[in-house]
Design a protein around this nucleic acid. Structure first.
Length: 340
DNA sequence: GTTCCACCGGAAACGGGGGACC
DNA sequence: GGTCCCCCGTTTCCGGTGGAAC
């Protein structure tokens, strides 16, 4: 039934970006000075998980590369590169600057920045995906102050991003252009799934009614929906049938959510995972109960201050949410959506 | 009204790690 | 082999906050 499994991967980009033409056009107009060889003001994309933000940015970079000669386009995933050194190293690699002699504890940031400025083209578009995951905003200042660098930020929530910046940077960036990506509606998500199904599944493997059911259950998250479609196809294959039925769909989307959550969990370090598992086990519990449970279970428990850092991280990962303040603080597991 | 308590988060200090250099 | 360097993860300290207890 599955003809091409690549279609269901998160990094697979369709030829046509369904239902994001307006947003793409908006972004193109913000970055249009680049096509005339000029620097464009920073722009930001905000929107929940699975709304096509990264895919839109990639498409935008593709279009810019087609129309502008001598343009560096760089997309950095700040989820995997959250330190200043890591971001600068990625920048150097992507502009083909020498990186063999870089050392986290030896090479100064100024030197790395100078090397980047020397090797990049006159104009360079830098997309910082999941920018709210950055530990050190200094790199934003570095890039902001670099001639010829056009910045595009991607984050889930506006306040998560701006809230972490110092006043000076915040006031500069608050004037940047913003494009908001709303969650997909059922019709839009059904279209997206139809296009994936026709590219990756056998002909007539699924009907519109089943596609709509998946789209509806995914609640606006394309990543969950696409993975759900793949799970449904596998279930149908397992059943030995040539068409996906409602019974194949039933567990497909919850399974997709669980898989995405598992992937996120696998990135946690031991103490972060323990804190998450305690919250998961209790469903919801107060801060003091959480600390007590952690101290009872942890080997070499980390300090309370460090635990608070871990909990902030878990919140940013969309794994948990916090409610209330001070002694009434409670933590609970976020059911959905989660970031992949 | 004052003190206590539990929590949050910023800032500074500390120590480990590991390659370069002598 | 000893020392240097400095980033990163972690701890310590501390001020702020606001309800509870007195």
């Amino acid at each position: 039934m599955i003809r091409d499994g690549r279609v269901f991967r998160t990094d697979w980009t369709p030829e046509d970006l369904h239902h994001r033409h307006g947003e793409l056009q908006q972004l193109s107009s913000y970055l249009s000075p680049i096509e005339e060889g000029r620097e464009a003001d920073p722009a930001s994309i905000f929107g929940p998980t699975g709304t096509g933000k990264t895919a839109a940015a990639e498409e935008l970079l593709r279009q810019l590369r087609k129309s502008v000669v001598d343009l560096d386009t760089i997309l950095i995933d700040c989820w995997n590169n959250h330190g200043r050194f890591q971001v600068l190293r990625e920048l150097l690699e992507l502009v083909n600057a020498p990186t063999h002699d870089l050392r986290q504890d030896r090479t100064s940031r100024d030197e790395m920045l100078a090397r980047f400025r020397e090797h990049k083209d006159d104009l360079c578009v830098v997309v910082l995906d999941e920018v709210d995951q950055l530990d050190d905003e200094g790199v934003l200042r570095d890039l902001w102050q670099t001639d010829g660098v056009c910045l595009l930020f991607i984050a889930n929530r506006e306040d998560d991003f701006y809230g972490t910046l110092d006043d000076r940077l915040q006031s500069r960036l608050l004037t940047s252009q913003v494009v908001k990506f709303e969650p997909y509606g059922v019709d839009a998500l059904t279209d997206i799934l139809r296009s994936r199904a026709s590219a990756g599944l056998a002909r007539d493997a699924i009907r519109t009614a089943e596609l709509r059911t998946i789209a509806d259950t995914a609640r606006g998250d394309a990543r969950v929906a696409i993975r759900g479609l793949k799970n449904a196809a596998e279930a149908a294959e397992h059943r030995g049938t040539r068409r996906i039925g409602q019974e194949d769909i039933k567990g497909a989307v919850p399974k997709a959510r669980a898989e995405i959550r598992q992937k996120t969990k696998s990135k946690l370090i031991r103490h972060q995972r323990l804190l998450f598992e305690i919250i998961e086990e209790h469903g919801e519990l107060s801060a003091s109960d959480l600390h007590d449970a952690y101290e009872a279970e942890a080997e070499n428990p980390r300090s309370k201050r460090q635990r608070r850092n871990y909990l902030t991280k878990l919140e940013r990962y969309n794994l948990i949410e916090r409610e209330g303040e001070r002694r009434w603080t409670t933590y609970r597991v976020v059911e959905a959506p989660v970031r992949s």
